[in-house]
C-alpha cells in the first residue's frame, strides 16, 4: 500500500536546497539509497528529499592515502573497492559480506546507514579505522565518527555528506566478529579491533563493540590496558575485563548473555588481530 501521507518527493541538485527543505521540520526526511522509510515511515513524515542528485556517490583518494566516501556510496561499492579492500587485514570485506545481502548492499548508502545510528556491523569497523564524518548544517563541519555517536550529533539536524578513513600505517592488524541467531540476521553483539605493534609493544589499540540496538562505541578503558604493553594473553584478558558494556535484556537475548558475547567477541578479535600481526607478544 503506498505511503499516502507523503505529499512531495524532492530531488535538489545542491546541498543548500536540501538543507533549506530539511529545516521545515520533522515532516521532512532524507532518502539515501535503499530506504528504511519505504517500510517504516514515521507517521509525521510528509516530504521526502532524495540525496541522489548531489554528486555524493564518489570514492576519492587523497594524496596522504586517506579515502573519502560520498554519503551516497553504496555498501556494495565499499565491498568492491580495491583501496578499501586493502585496509588492514581486509577488515572492510570481512565485515561487509555479513551486512544484509547483496539486495540490501546494492541499494543502501553508507551515509544513510551511518545516520540511522542503530546497531550496525559497519560502525564498529569504521570506529576502529578512526573514521570521521563530514556534516552539513548550513556549513560543512567534520567530526570523528566516535564523537558523532558519543555526543549525540547523529540525532541533530544535519546532512551527513561524507565519511573519511585516514591512511593505514604498515604493521596494523584488524579483526571483526559478529554473533547472530542465523547467518542472515542482525547481530546480537559485534566487535572490531585494530592494533599496531611497535617493537613488541602495542602502539595503537582501538576496540569497538555493540551489544544491543544502539550503535557501537569505542572502549577507551579497555584500549588503555593494551597501549604501551606487550600483546600478551594476560593483557588481552585485562582489556576484556575493562570493557564497559551497555547491554540490555530483550526478547532476543538477556543482558548477561549479550555481555558475555561481547566479551567473548572482543577477546577473540584481539587474539585474531595478534595472529594477523604475526604473533607480537
Amino acid at each position: 500500500m503506498p505511503l499516502t501521507q507523503i505529499r512531495a518527493f524532492h530531488r535538489p541538485d545542491h546541498i543548500e536546497g536540501v538543507w533549506h527543505l530539511l529545516q521545515e521540520g520533522p515532516e521532512v526526511r532524507l532518502v539515501g539509497g535503499g530506504s528504511e522509510l519505504a517500510i517504516r515511515c514515521p507517521s509525521e513524515v510528509r516530504v521526502l528529499v532524495d540525496l541522489a542528485y548531489l554528486g555524493l556517490d564518489r570514492i576519492e583518494l587523497a594524496d596522504d592515502g586517506s579515502i573519502t566516501l560520498g554519503a551516497m556510496v553504496t555498501l556494495t561499492d565499499m565491498l568492491e573497492h580495491p583501496e578499501l579492500r586493502a585496509l588492514p587485514s581486509g577488515v572492510i570485506q570481512e565485515m561487509m559480506v555479513h551486512v544484509g545481502s547483496p539486495l540490501l548492499r546494492n541499494a543502501a548508502s553508507i551515509g544513510g546507514h551511518l545516520a540511522r545510528g542503530w546497531l550496525s556491523d559497519v560502525i564498529p569497523v569504521l570506529l576502529v579505522l578512526d573514521a570521521s564524518v563530514e556534516l552539513y548544517d548550513g556549513e560543512y563541519r567534520t567530526t570523528t565518527l566516535d564523537r558523532y555517536y558519543r555526543d549525540g550529533i547523529h540525532n541533530g539536524l544535519h546532512i551527513l555528506t561524507a565519511v573519511t578513513i585516514p591512511p593505514a600505517s604498515n604493521g596494523r592488524a584488524a579483526a571483526f566478529l559478529r554473533f547472530s541467531r542465523s547467518a542472515y540476521d542482525h547481530a546480537l553483539a559485534n566487535a572490531a579491533c585494530l592494533v599496531d605493534i611497535e617493537e613488541g609493544r602495542v602502539g595503537t589499540a582501538r576496540i569497538a563493540l555493540s551489544a544491543g540496538f544502539r550503535a557501537a562505541a569505542r572502549q577507551p578503558a579497555s584500549e588503555s590496558q593494551l597501549v604501551g604493553s606487550g600483546f600478551t594473553d594476560e593483557n588481552i584478558t585485562a582489556a576484556v575485563s575493562a570493557l564497559e558494556i551497555d547491554a540490555h535484556s530483550d526478547w532476543l537475548a538477556s543482558a548477561d548473555y549479550r555481555s558475555h558475547l561481547a566479551r567473548t567477541l572482543v577477546g577473540r578479535c584481539l587474539h585474531l588481530a595478534r595472529e594477523r600481526a604475526g604473533g607480537g607478544s
Binding site: 518527493f9 530531488r11 532518502v31 535503499g34 530506504s35 528504511e36 522509510l37 519505504a38 517500510i39 521526502l48 532524495d50 541522489a52 556494495t76 547483496p102 539486495l103 540490501l104 546494492n106 541499494a107
Partner: peptide, 16 residues
C-alpha cells in the same frame, strides 16, 4: 535489476 544491480523493489521509492 536496477541498472544491472539486484535490489529489493520494496525498499525503494518509485521516484528513485
Amino acid at each position: 535489476l536496477l541498472d544491472g544491480r539486484a535490489v529489493a523493489a520494496c525498499l525503494l521509492f518509485a521516484a528513485q
